[in-house]
Amino acid sequence: MWRNLAQLVQYRPLIHSLVVRDLKARYRGSVLGLFWSFFNPLLLLTIYSFVFSTILKNTRDPDTDPFALFLFCGLLPWTWFATGLNECAVSLIHSGNLIKKVLFPAEVLPIVAVIATMVHFFFGLLILAAFQIYTGHLPDPVDLLWFPVVVVIQFVFTVGLGLILAALTVHFRDIRDLVSNLLTFWFFATPIVYSYRMGAGALGEHSWILKLNPFYHLAVAYQEILFFPGPFNGGRSLLAIGALSVLLFIAGYWLFDRLRDSFAEAV
């Protein structure tokens, strides 16, 4: 396992070219092309902010103004996470040809899925930045130093989970449906459309339940860094999640490596 893991570094050019291929192929033949990468999050943002700031406006935490911006800070990383996992789950099945007919390092496929969706996340960040400048609601520059840390942790976390899903989906095709349903539940269990203070307030003494969700800490970190004023002091919990992510990655890679030989036969 460790030797395979070390080899992963050598696959950088392969991963790079596959990510580029994915991005190119996705919008090839569509009129708007790359614009969709911007348009999708923008549309989501418009819908959510209309619902929550116009229809459900009395239910909001007043700290979350401007609400659209708050929402965006949680929604962007979530979209990366959710689409990344969904694509991981089917990554091996959809490239069955490669696994069956070519000597191909299968773990590259879920990693490519996570990176390709991460690129879309970065496109979304450009919109977020433009929006922040437009509203004049700028993040604390010192807090921003934490931002890449959160991104890296989320990346490791997603890849770890993605490897597990990819490997198991080969044997149990229904995982792919299970994942998309589970993600809907997970979305609302995470403070994205509501602030974590509101969530904690509503659950009272049971609010610790929210904190069992690893993505809770990531979402809150994004919001603290990009949206809420004041210095970021979630470093401790963030590092804990970071450690968890690394463990998850190792566990995921171990499982993937164990099942590797079955892929060519079961895909």
Partner: peptide, 14 residues
């Protein structure tokens, strides 16, 4: 180099 399935990794769109 294995010529088992030719063009196994080709992506049709690009």
């Amino acid at each position: 180099s294995a010529l088992i399935e030719l063009g196994a990794g080709f992506h049709p769109e690009i």
